[in-house]
Amino acid sequence: MMRWKRKDLLTLEELSKEEIEFILETAKSFKEVSTRDVKKVPTLRGKTIVNLFFEPSTRTRTSFELAAKRLSADVLDFSIGGSSVSKGESPVDTARNIEAMKVDCFIVRHSVAGVPKLIAKEVKTAVINAGDDSHEHPTQGLLDLFTIREKKGKIKGLKIAIIGDIRHSRVARSNIWGLTKLGASVILCGPPTLIPLGMEKMGAEVTFSLKEAIKKSDILYFLRVQRERQKETFFPSIQEYVHLYGMDLESLKEGKKDLLIMHPGPINRGIEIKSEVAESTSSLILEQVTNGIAVRMAVLYLLVGKRSKND
C-alpha cells in the first residue's frame, strides 16, 4: 500500500500516477462525511490552516475553508486587503511571520507562477498551491479527475477536450498533467491566439474547430473566458467567440450520446456555454463543486494529518 510522503502539494506535474490515484481513493471516503447530519470529523482538531491568498478568490477559498472545518481544523484567513503586502513585505516573509505563530498548513494563491513553491522551500509548514497565475491549480485538477472517474468509472482511454482560453488557464495545465498521467487523451480547442505554441509537448492534440472537438470527445471541459486577465485582445469580439466556441444544446446533439460537460466555474452564461447546457443532464458543473470539498479534505488529511512533532 502506498504511503504519502510529500510535505506540499504544488503541481500535478510533479506527482506520479500512483500518488494521484492515492489522493482520489482517499477522497472517495471523505465524500461521505459531507452527506452526514453532523458534517464534521475530529481528525484535524487543534491544527491551524491558513488561507494565504495574495489574489482574490471566493470559491476556492470557501471550498478549502469548508474542507478544513469539516475536519475540525481552525482556519485563519489572510487576505490581501489591508495587509502588510501593501506595506512592501515579500510573500516569503509574510509566510515566515505567520509560521512563527505555529500553524500547520498554508493554502497559497498568488498572481505570479512559482510563488507557492518558493514559500514551500522556505517554511517547514505544509503548502498547498491554490493557483499560481497560469501555471497550476492542482486541487482543481484533482477534483476534475475525481468527478470524471466517478461518472465514467475510469479515466484511461477517455478523450477529453479542454475548450477556450488555454493560454491563461492554470486549470487547463493541471488537467492536462493529471489526465495524461492517468491515461486519457486530451484535445485542446480554442482560437489560435489562446492556445500557446508547444502545448503538444504536454501530450495534447490541438484543434481550432469546436465541431471536431465535440465529435471526438467523451467530455467537453469549458474554460471561463477570463476577460479580466486579457489586457490585450485575443479575439475580435465576444460575439465572435460565442459564435465559434460557445456551446449550445444543438451542438451537444452532435456529440456522443453520453457526452458530459464540465466547467471549473464561475460560468459566463451565454459566452462559453449557454444556460441550457449548464443546466442540462449532461452537465457535471455542480458535482465538481461538491467533489471539491472531498478532494480538499483528502489533501488536507494527507498533508496535515500525519505531521508529528519529530518530523
Binding site: 500500500m1 504511503r3 504519502w4 510522503k5 481513493e25 482517499t26 472517495k28 471516503s29 471523505f30 461521505e32 462525511v33 470529523v41 475530529p42 481528525t43 475536519l71 483528502a298 488529511y301 494527507l302 494529518g305 500525519k306 505531521r307 508529528s308 512533532k309
Partner: peptide
C-alpha cells in the same frame, strides 16, 4: 478519522468509507 493517535503512528492510515 476519529483516532487519537494520528500523529503518533507516522504516515496516515488509509481512510475507508463509513
Amino acid at each position: 478519522l476519529y483516532r487519537d493517535d494520528l500523529s503518533a503512528i507516522g504516515p496516515q492510515p488509509v481512510v475507508h468509507r463509513t
